[in-house]
Design a protein around this nucleic acid. Sequence first.
DNA 1: GCCGATTAGTTTACACGTAAGATTGTCGCA
DNA 2: TGCGACAATCTTACGTGTAAACTAATCGGC
Lengths: 159, 159
Amino acid sequence: MSHRNLQQEIGKKQPFDSLEQAAILNILRTSDIFHNQFGRLFRPYGLTPSQYNVLRILRGEGKPMPSLEIADRMVQVVPAITGLIDRLQAQNLVKRKRCTEDRRVVYIEITPKALSLLKEIDEPDLNLHRKLIGHLSSDELSELSRLLEKARASLVCTK
Amino acid sequence: MSHRNLQQEIGKKQPFDSLEQAAILNILRTSDIFHNQFGRLFRPYGLTPSQYNVLRILRGEGKPMPSLEIADRMVQVVPAITGLIDRLQAQNLVKRKRCTEDRRVVYIEITPKALSLLKEIDEPDLNLHRKLIGHLSSDELSELSRLLEKARASLVCTK
DNA sequence: GCCGATTAGTTTACACGTAAGATTGTCGCA
DNA sequence: TGCGACAATCTTACGTGTAAACTAATCGGC
């Protein structure tokens, strides 16, 4: 377990121009690597990270949700949701239900098949979380979350 | 500037299962938002974040590089590089040069046009960095980088 | 010198993410 | 009632990320 820092890791010969640049690159790089790890975890179950994310949101909500509300909770811009739901529906993991009062909105409902699939993934998912950052102390994890939340504070509202 | 934390931000009603989960979600979410911001910055110049990344690597190196070496410095897996280089080449921002000694390797060279484009972007790029996390103190930035590097330490070698 | 293993790079197929624009349905107001 | 603004969703086009399979060139032994 080598403890190379980011500069060595990406083979850069000059030091970073600024602490800001180093921090942002660290955020982007760590995220990419973690995203990749989760992608590999979900793959055997036929899910992508985004698809898993949608299902987790639906399970957490406990009842059908309009698709735009799902999109709001993800970082993505709206149009991606359509295709995402299409693919989940093709796997019988969600159902679309047109709302009768406002016929513009489409409710998305999670299926029992999806719930049992999620249940299967729960433990490996938890294990991966621990594998990825279980070696940080509680204090470090709290501090990390605090700093990232503070980092986002400048534009939570601008999206 | 509301200081909602992640839990409120994504509308989750239950607290997180664990500090690990909260930290990882914070990393992924912050990264997505920042990535998005840089995407908007580069768009007017006809570049995507990945394309900009490739050009920055080439400028930093100061001389032509084999394409796989470029891929190594990015998070991406190899095959994506081909198309990336194709599009940069179509814009006359890089050139491909087959190596004469080892005819398997293709050297990628940055063009003067790309260098002057980068120069144009340097200042807005620096400004965005400051806008995104300039409100964190030097100590906080250092601590953030340290924690993220520590987070990655468990798998720097496994990629 | 020849054959298998390795390495650099490409191709293909598929799932996203983004922006821009089109569709369809609802609402406010004259 | 009719009409324009708005809202929810979908469509399209393009760039990117992933895995798997393929090509071409080099290397290592014998």
